[in-house]
């Protein structure tokens, strides 16, 4: 596993549209529940324990399934391999990117995981936002790592796309989980700086405080990567869902979600 590759995927400057989303902070600020460093800290902890864990788990499980395609086989490095066309007559070029499009057990597992995110996301606005981010990430990844095997679902949920990206980059389930949970955390934190004008050093101190929690969640997520989809964590953040629906009705907003 390349540490530098992990940094490439976890970098907020990866052109995958993450900056357009606030992870629910914009709505929580408008509701008056997040207004300073202390309330932001509590928001970030609650979000990480619910949406963060969920996202980490589904990224890890997707990565583990996708690695079976050879995406992260030793030596595969930066280039994912699709299934051998000789063995899989169903494999055909994907219209989106010309890459291999597997039709296989890993693909069925990834479709089930994608549904698993659907049934854990009560808010329609959050489902739309997650799929928009998933599509954008997949687009970026297939350009950055040509030959990335793409799933049957064209606009997967964001955690699923993170898992595919990690597999394509030669990373493992734990790193996929880390990218997912850490990305959600930093996205929300930097949105708070922009929305509330908070001290950026103070906000990043909160992020640094939560780093060990991200590590812990990544280990938990990777350990459960092969569990049945219904058994995976489904911890809900009720106010994130309700706020997202309020937010979706605004005519003017800084962030898409």
């Amino acid at each position: 596993m390349s540490l530098s590759t992990l940094l490439v995927l976890a970098d907020g400057r990866l052109p995958a549209g993450a900056h357009a989303h606030s992870g629910g902070v914009e709505a929580a600020v408008a509701a008056g529940r997040v207004h300073d460093l202390a309330t932001l800290a509590s928001f970030l902890r609650g979000r990480t324990a619910t949406a963060g864990l969920l996202s980490a788990t589904f990224a890890a499980a997707t990565c583990a399934a996708w690695c079976e395609l050879g995406g992260a086989a030793p030596g595969a490095g930066r280039r994912a391999r699709g299934p051998d066309p000789g063995e899989s007559p169903d494999a055909k070029p994907n219209a989106d990117n010309g890459g291999p499009h597997p039709s296989s057990a890993p693909d069925a597992r990834v479709s089930a995981l994608d549904e698993g995110v659907d049934v854990r996301t009560a808010s329609p606005a959050l489902r739309v936002a997650s799929r928009a981010q998933g599509r954008a990430l997949l687009r970026a990844v297939t350009r950055i790592w040509p030959g990335t095997a793409t799933p049957a679902v064209a606009a997967p949920h964001h955690p699923v796309a993170v898992g595919i990206a990690a597999a394509a980059a030669g990373l493992g389930a734990r790193e996929a989980a880390l990218v997912a949970v850490y990305g959600g955390l930093t996205g929300a934190a930097s949105a708070a700086v922009r929305l509330l004008g908070l001290d950026p050093f103070g906000v990043h101190a909160l992020v640094a405080d939560l780093a060990p929690e991200c590590d812990r969640i990544a280990v938990v997520a990777a350990a459960r990567a092969d569990d049945p989809v219904d058994d995976l964590p489904a911890g809900s953040a009720i106010l994130l869902d309700v706020d997202a629906e309020q937010h979706a009705t605004w005519e003017v907003r800084l962030f898409a979600s």
Binding site: R33, G46, R47, A49, V119, A122, A234, A237, L240
Partner: peptide, 23 residues
């Protein structure tokens, strides 16, 4: 599956009263 939904409160879930969860 149509829905998976878990909710936890109490000292073992110290984030339950986060502004993102139940506030």
């Amino acid at each position: 599956t149509i829905l998976r939904h878990d909710l936890a409160i109490g000292p073992r879930t110290p984030t339950w009263n986060s502004p993102a969860v139940l506030h």
